[in-house]
Nucleic acid binder design. Structure first.
Lengths: 134, 134
DNA sequence: AAGAAAAGTGATAATAATTATCAGTTTACA
DNA sequence: TGTAAACTGATAATTATTATCACTTTTCTT
């Protein structure tokens, strides 16, 4: 794989963004920063980096795919209110692979856990709203 | 929700199918059984049943969504060779929700685990091939 | 440093899954 | 039995993603 300025720009945005942006989100940021990049290039490079293992593709309940520069084993949480995606530490589900392999006899190469719920910030906001309504 | 013949037919196919069919697969079966059903009707009813909780929508690494009549808490395994989707018992990951809630302070309403690997049948097939090549 | 092959790019057409629309049909229930 | 609400088939529209293609960059060889 050759060096490409565009690819590095995409990677930088991914690294700065805690909430796991989609291809289009990255494209919009670059466009606003007066780049001449094409959406196809964003997709191309995200997929290339994902298949080389430099980044990770998250495909959960959402329509779009989202990407994560953190390739450490960890899980994801999608807030049903604000839509942001958060990391969840590996240790919430220890030995899952071992147990699943023992139980099924299948070879397990990878697995993803996606949680759905309400993040702390949105829980707080709901509390505020309740106060006002009282 | 009113009764509809088409919806019940769709549900029946879902119940008979162990490997969690997609909307199009169900559509094809009905078409072959000389039904006059429309693909839109299949999608409509699958989504309706999924949001009423009668069935479950599985959205993993695949492009298409797949559906499951089993709404008991359980996980899924996608075979990277044959593409079939299998059920994985809940007990491979006990207390995941409790741990995740404690660790994050988020409210968790649901979660999905999708495993990727090779199913037993495909493991056997690979062994056969190895024998032949020796 | 020059020049050729390989890899990458932007623009846009194509694809594929899913959803929206709409006129006609079925269901439920007063 | 009639009417409002829900549902249907056909098909157009939408949305995310991928393929194509002429052109540009990068890399590697000499």
């Amino acid at each position: 794989m050759n060096y490409s300025k565009q690819r590095e720009e995409i990677y930088e945005i991914l690294k700065e963004n805690v909430v796991h942006p989609s291809a289009e989100y990255i494209y919009d940021i670059l466009k606003k920063a007066n780049s001449n990049i094409s959406l196809a290039t964003v997709y191309r490079n995200l997929n290339k980096m994902a298949s080389s293992g430099r980044i990770k593709k998250i495909e959960g309940l959402e329509e779009k795919a989202h990407f994560d520069h953190n390739t450490f084993e960890h899980y994801h949480f999608i807030c049903q209110k604000c839509g942001r995606i958060f990391d969840i530490d590996k240790e919430v589900a220890p030995e899952v692979v071992i147990r699943a392999q023992e139980k099924t006899g299948f070879i397990i190469n990878s697995y993803d856990i996606v949680f759905h719920g309400i993040c702390r910030e949105c829980i707080e906001k709901e509390k505020e709203n309740d106060k006002i309504c009282m």
